[in-house]
Design a binder for these strands. Structure first.
Lengths: 336, 336
DNA sequence: TTGAAAGCGATACCAC
DNA sequence: GTGGTATCGCTTTCAA
């Protein structure tokens, strides 16, 4: 049925070990033999069994990306394709494959044994929302290569990648200041949520001082964008720009300002995290920091490759912070 | 180092074949032995090597989803997570894994041999944009299990899944008619593009007659939404509703109508394909047909499983058309 | 019920 | 340069 290395060996009248060497282009084999064997492989339409190769080599060349489909609205959701693309772009050329594993079907208990012990994968990539302290500990104990998207307590710094969210805030604020705005507010996001805290911290850092009333947390949706803006406008001291936790928030903010007859960008600037497809089409178009999720995936892939292909043990290095990209649009256009 | 089936056999003082049988819960093994062996496996933290199992069984339990990262703006892009989720939800419980393979790293020539001959995967799922006539032919010749998202000439009907786009048009039009609109136009989409043709056909079918001027094709973006609407409004005979090829088109249409002072939904209804996150938040919110991409993935998974686990050869059945979901919002709210 | 031995399809070491 | 053979870790007859 299927043609194996033995068939080739027989047909070429050489030992199977020779065929194997030809397969791997070993320098000890004469060009003549190589040519002969290759011709036969071609002719017989031979393709080595990856399973057998992997078993013999004791290496699967397989990276697993763990997701949890039981939870919806996962961070990964929107940018999944980009992240996968990023990971693929670095592991693919090195001969690794990417497999998607759903935690739902694994079960947290069997998780470590499946992967770390069963060596179903050579390395793991996962979102920090999937990790638990025990999981991290077990993985660490076994010294199993894994990379976490986002920081997580107990995970070594050189195994974390993340978008530099604090930096995103800084970029947004610096852009606003450069445009002549002076007192931005921060709208949306829930206290305690790490993403929010990080962004808020960056926001605070890039300003000399921030009035407490200018920080308006709330679940990041359109309704809250509107409501929080309404509240903000009631203050005696008003901000002259608003940094938003997400496009949805920004959209709410924009609508509320329009209804109240406040001109954007003249009277109030709007700058926001994320860059969904509609952002360029609002009136005015929204200034965003674009989270480069492809780069994020690529960074994760790189870290993992470094870990897997290190010959010597590498010294611990910093986590990989992917720099966001500022997309300036009309909602903050007020050249001084 | 790693504990194998031999270690267990030795420790339990049984043959390795016995351990194997315990692993697979064979009925010929006494409960007593099973218990004993299992205890030892537990204790020694044993996990079978999937590689070895797969080689022995000659089956990898692996489904590959082929993508082409070299082309951007792929259809998959936006709904990738959902599609993967759908596929996973049906193959995961059956013990299959999903691996993502980038065509870019494979090369069209090596493609068939890699997968079909090398049996890297037991089955393939791919977008029709990736297929070529030769590829389809080769896969067919080798009788290799594959499912295509979207139709493709030469691919058997029972290997295709797609969103029922014609049906989507019908749903949109029927909704409009039910709301009292009488002469809808169709805006956006490029002639020749299969997706457009299918939707347009559904549109035409659900109406007694359509004026030619009411069909306004054009690359589906916001700018064209505006432009085409402008043109539409210049006609002596105006439509009273607009079906849009995409949310972006709809957004353009909406803006143009607003600028021209035409009331939505009173004077003109808007209904559109797709349902991006911002659709509920436009003013007024947009009526959409939501393409259920999770169901699409699930359908693909089901077809493949049927193909892989069929005992007898199955008779050819129809392709799987996933029904879209109508989300009625204010942009078409004009109860008669 | 259990065990021994022959695969599965490659790799790798060591002679020749 | 090339060939023989053990090995990777599990499954699967076939005997006992």
């Amino acid at each position: 049925m299927k043609v194996t290395i033995n068939d080739i060996a027989r047909a070429a009248n050489v030992a199977k070990s020779t065929v194997s060497k030809v397969l791997n282009d070993a320098p000890t084999i004469s060009e003549a033999t190589k040519a002969k064997v290759r011709a036969i492989m071609q002719e017989m339409n031979y393709e080595p069994s990856s399973l057998a190769t992997q078993l013999a080599r004791q290496k699967g060349y397989n990276i697993a990306l763990i997701i949890d489909l039981s939870r919806t609205g996962d961070f990964l959701n929107a940018s999944f394709y980009d992240i996968i693309g990023g990971v693929e772009s670095v592991i693919g050329p090195r001969g690794y494959e990417l497999t998607i594993s759903n935690m739902q079907h694994i079960g947290r208990e069997r998780f470590v044994s499946r992967f770390a012990i069963g060596r179903k994968a050579d390395g793991l990539i996962m979102d920090n929302s999937i990790l638990t302290p025990e999981l991290a500990r077990e993985l660490n104990e076994r010294n199993f290569p894994y990379i976490v998207i986002g920081e997580y307590p107990g995970v070594p710094a050189n195994q974390c990648v993340d978008i530099d969210n604090a930096r995103g805030s800084v970029m947004l604020v610096e852009h606003l200041l450069a445009q002549g705005y002076q007192s931005p507010a921060f709208v949306g996001g829930e206290s305690g949520e790490p993403l929010y805290e990080t962004r808020l911290e960056g926001f605070r850092q890039s300003l000399d001082s921030v009035r407490d009333e200018f920080i308006r947390p709330g679940y990041a949706n359109e309704a809250n964008g509107r409501r929080l803006t309404r509240e903000l406008l009631k203050e005696t001291e008003r901000p002259d720009a608003i940094v938003c936790m997400s496009n949805l928030v920004a959209y709410g903010v924009l609508q509320e300002l329009q209804e109240q007859g406040i001109a954007v960008p003249e009277e109030m600037g709007i700058a926001t995290f994320d860059n969904i497809p509609l952002a360029p089409y609002t009136t005015p178009p929204l200034t965003c920091v674009d989270m480069d999720t492809f780069a994020l995936g690529a960074a994760a892939g790189n870290m993992l490759m470094a870990r897997l292909e290190e010959s010597a043990v590498e010294e611990v290095q910093a986590p990989s912070w992917v720099k966001p990209r500022l997309v300036a649009r009309r909602s903050t256009e007020r050249q001084a």
